[in-house]
Amino acid sequence: MLTLDALDKVYKTGTFGTSDLHAVRQVSLDVQRGEVVSLIGESGSGKSTIGKMVLHLLDSTGGSITFDGRDVTRLGFRARRDYYRKVQGVFQDPFSSFNPIFKVDRTFETLRRSYFPRVSGAAWRQKLEEALGAVTLEPGDILGKFPHQLSGGQLQRLLIARALLLDIELLVADEIISMLDASTRIDVLNLLGELKSRGLGILFVTHDLSLGNYVSDRVVILYKGRVVERGATSAVFDDPLHPYTRDLLASVPHLDRTWEEVEAEESRRSARLAGRCLFHEALAAQGRSLGEEAAAGSASGTADDVGLVEHAPGHFVGCFRKAADEECPAG
């Protein structure tokens, strides 16, 4: 449904935009209906930038965004309005998502004025109560309150309800539970599962590996703006290939296995993959020598070098260097 192809984002920083910050490099991924795709990466890796480009809150610098086969990389105001009927977002900080001087109802009112100006008051009320019910909120507890009178979990669910009012097909959820208490996290997570079973596609942005594991069908691992590995959640988590993914997974506790088992498996894998790069091996296997590749790479920028190869069906991995400007460990 949603496809990103070689998406790039360069921020102009410094006075007069003199220096460039390459926040997102050649990111390709896709999200299908009824599927949760987790975009996992540490803070500053460019996750929010990708989310905002999908939501057209930021312009992309290069690459393309396709929605249901239609190119939506550049949209005018009208087209963007239509796009937002199908694609909505929820952000990390629920308190910053509401204008603090107004009651929370106004967020819904804004949506109504914009998209449902002809819906009668009673019909709207009905629709609103349905949406609130879907996120297990009591309208009586919520409406007429100021944001600071509600909890983060309630606000976050309100924002999901807001998105549901539009019959969306894709939800971009940017770290929507990282600021919530453990007790309300699970409610919101289960809600996402529920939305998924209704056929929504969800791009779930998180820096928390275990959350990615819990909710998603597929994961995309991002490092410094580059996708280093992606694939089915079980494939990536059971057989992480890229050094960064392996480091990341080694640093989180596993509930179902002891530390020793994990250690042992990881050291076996490290020994097997040390000094290698599956990406360049695969390229070489395709009949292109590393020398040619490097020559082509330095001639035409690094476009080829930030791509991915399909190591196993549905399991993609990029060059084993970490940062984009490092050397490939295979030389």
Binding site: K52, L55, L57, Y84, T107, L111, R162
Partner: peptide, 14 residues
């Protein structure tokens, strides 16, 4: 830079 501005934009408002 506050998110409620982005949400207003997501509401298709000019």
């Amino acid at each position: 830079s506050r998110d409620f501005i982005d949400l207003a934009r997501l509401s298709g408002v000019g």
